[in-house]
Nucleic acid binder design. Structure first.
Length: 620
DNA sequence: GCCGTTTTCGGCCCGACTGTTTTCAGTCG
């Protein structure tokens, strides 16, 4: 785990412990905010904290970090622990914080369960329900206990957070189903799925309906859909259900994953919200989030004498507590997101950027000095014109060279790179030097069979544990493109990993550093190198850092993309094609790139044919 | 615990929903 992630985890725990011990709630939320700021920060904060020229001052320049939290970060950087946190942990049973995972249990209830019914963890909670001692807790009635019991069962069955790919597939299916209902104008996934986060907790689907008849029909279509396991709530404007989700991937049946069977039968919560066109934009903005972005938006509205909610942007009337939409007040904006942002003197913020990571400042129509640079043309899926990382039947793909090239052409690409595995990737049937020589000839031969697309002879060459490449330079020099990737020794020490990856970046024949850390989302943390050193070297040596678009990888991850973009690096977005459907994962790679504020001009896959091939040749 | 171009003290986003109550507390997104 990177030190930022480890620090963020501790601050998050700090926040939870403060909540549960009944500390000032604003103090708790300050710690939670700091945890987020730390997790999102693109550079290593421990290094920053230890810098001789005023680490504390630098930390305090980060929004959400004040003097006290800066002290805690410095302490963590020096000692690997935070004394105040350890003291707080000693006061609270170790299993209590896990109860936050149960829907419906918040800080107040968990504290009461602990203090009044002696609950210390999930097992003792179940016991207190069984023996009735839970009824000692104030405001605890029969229905409340039933709800907690149901929530415990759902938590056990729920997949927890789900990777972007399976979540998007389920959302697409639900949307197609609901759109077939007469009177449904639009259905769109909001929430973290729309923002392109690498994992999502639930699905939020917004449905724009023509009238109340369509409203009822759409709700009915949803709750009776195949795969709906249980309906949790069903109102006029909102329905909630647990829905089966297929979590399988090509990683699941490999030796890497013994848990495939355990994951079958998982469910995810799906909320649908039904509304008419006049409020659709406000609802879409509201339910897309993030929560932090929404807080800033509402504050911005208040600063302008307005109030923002899921029904629109309204004139603010602080003396009257009745919500404006209930009084028939005409909204200033609400039909589209664009008009809401415009009314707040902002350009429309793409969903992937709505994380309160500087977008509030840089998307102001007249941004001030010193704010983050706003992308001139944030990368879009239509900008991608080349796939530079693809496998064939020569190693572990299912397509021949010609089939691969035809599929790439069909998708509108001007260039496809054939980059089969190198000899050390034995499980993936990596090519020996002799086989690679023959494969290069086969690629050249395929060029006459598929016209209208440039087929590159390349390799995804292993970066060995010491940073050496898996083929000698003579052979690498015969290739049009070299993608160098780590596949083994993914748990090595950060300092050694940094040296290993730097050596690959500095190699004069390497174009792209493939899936730089080797992490798998929710499966394997991967390497933990000093990322800033990689950015600097990649920039200096004109090497592109890859965003591997497969939803199991998304490596570089969003915050690393942001760091690389800030450092001025080239970025590649590749689908690591093994199967024709892998081209469809491009959307996730592009979303990750957008979350890192990538401009089209820095993406090698978005270059014109001329520019791309000039860059490739510059390394030959 | 953070923050501030009306504030260095006194704020800190908003509404729906639920279940417990007799006017509200807690959770969620």
């Amino acid at each position: 785990m990177s030190s930022n992630a480890a620090l963020a985890e501790r601050l998050e725990l700090f926040s939870r412990l403060l909540e549960v011990t009944g500390a000032d709630s604003f103090r708790a939320s300050a710690h939670a905010r700091a945890a987020r700021a730390v997790a999102d920060w693109p550079a290593d904060l421990c290094a920053m904290a230890l810098s001789p020229d005023g680490g504390k001052a630098a930390l305090q320049s980060i929004a959400g970090i004040g003097p006290k939290l800066a002290d805690k970060i410095v302490e963590f950087a020096k000692t690997g622990a935070i004394k105040e946190l350890e003291e707080l942990k000693a006061q609270v049973p170790a299993g209590l914080i896990a109860l936050f995972e149960i829907s419906g249990l918040g800080p107040k209830t968990i504290r009461a369960l602990w203090q009044d019914a002696g609950v210390t963890d999930l097992d003792s909670l179940k016991k207190s329900i069984a023996d009735g001692s839970i009824m000692k807790v104030p405001r605890m009635g029969e229905k409340a206990v039933q709800k907690i019991s149901a929530a415990i069962a759902i938590a056990a069955q729920s997949a927890g957070r789900v990777r972007l790919g399976p979540a998007a597939a389920l959302a697409d299916a639900i949307i197609a189903h609901i759109k077939s209902v007469k009177g449904v104008r639009e259905a769109i996934a909001a929430g973290s799925l729309r923002r392109g986060k690498e994992t999502v907790g639930d699905l939020d689907i917004l449905i724009c309906i023509e009238n109340s008849k369509a409203q009822a029909a759409a709700a009915e279509a949803f709750v009776t859909m195949p795969g709906v396991r249980a309906v949790l709530a069903r109102g006029e404007n909102r329905c909630s259900a647990q829905v089966n989700i297929d979590l399988s991937s090509r990683w699941e049946d490999s030796s890497e994953s013994p848990s495939a069977a355990a994951q079958s039968g998982s469910t995810i919560q799906v909320d649908i919200r039904l509304m008419e066109e006049a409020v659709f934009g406000a609802a879409l903005a509201y339910f897309t989030g993030s929560k932090e972005h929404n807080v800033r938006m509402r504050q911005r509205a208040l600063d302008r004498g307005l109030t923002l909610n899921e029904y629109g942007l309204f004139p603010n009337t602080p003396d009257d507590p009745t919500p404006p939409q209930q009084k028939g007040v005409k909204p200033v904006a609400g039909k589209s997101e664009q008009e809401i942002y415009a009314a707040l003197d902002m350009a429309w913020v793409p969903p992937e950027l709505r994380e309160d990571r500087g977008e509030m400042e840089s998307f102001e129509l007249k941004p001030g000095k010193g704010v983050a640079h706003r992308p001139k043309h944030l990368i879009e899926i239509g900008d991608i014109k080349a796939e530079l990382h693809a496998h064939t039947t020569a190693s572990d793909g299912v397509l021949s060279i010609v089939e691969l090239a035809r599929e790439a052409k069909r998708r509108g690409f001007h260039t496809i790179a054939v980059t089969d595995h190198s000899r050390s990737s034995v499980i993936a049937n990596g090519l020996s030097p002799d086989r690679l020589e023959k494969h290069i000839k086969a690629v050249h031969a395929a060029r006459s069979e598929v016209e209208g697309i440039t087929i590159l002879a390349g390799s995804e060459v292993d970066i060995l544990s010491d940073g050496a490449l898996d083929y000698d330079d003579d052979l690498l020099g015969k290739l049009d493109i070299v993608v160098a990737s780590p596949h083994a020794a993914l748990t090595q020490d950060p300092a050694i990993a940094t040296k290993r990856l730097l050596k690959a970046i500095e190699h004069p024949l390497v174009h792209i550093l493939g899936h730089p850390t080797g992490r798998l989302v929710m499966r394997r943390p991967g390497l933990d190198p000093a990322m800033e050193e990689l950015y600097a070297a990649a920039k200096q040596h004109n090497v592109a850092l890859e965003i591997n678009a497969h939803w199991m990888r998304l490596d570089l991850r969003d915050v690393h993309v942001r760091g690389a973009v800030n450092a001025g690096c080239l970025i590649a977005i590749d689908c690591d094609v093994h199967h024709p459907s892998d081209f469809d994962t491009l959307r996730f790679g592009v979303q990750t790139a957008r979350r890192g504020w990538l401009d089209r001009s820095s993406c090698v896959n978005a270059m014109s044919h001329t520019d791309l091939h000039a860059w490739l040749k510059s390394k030959r």
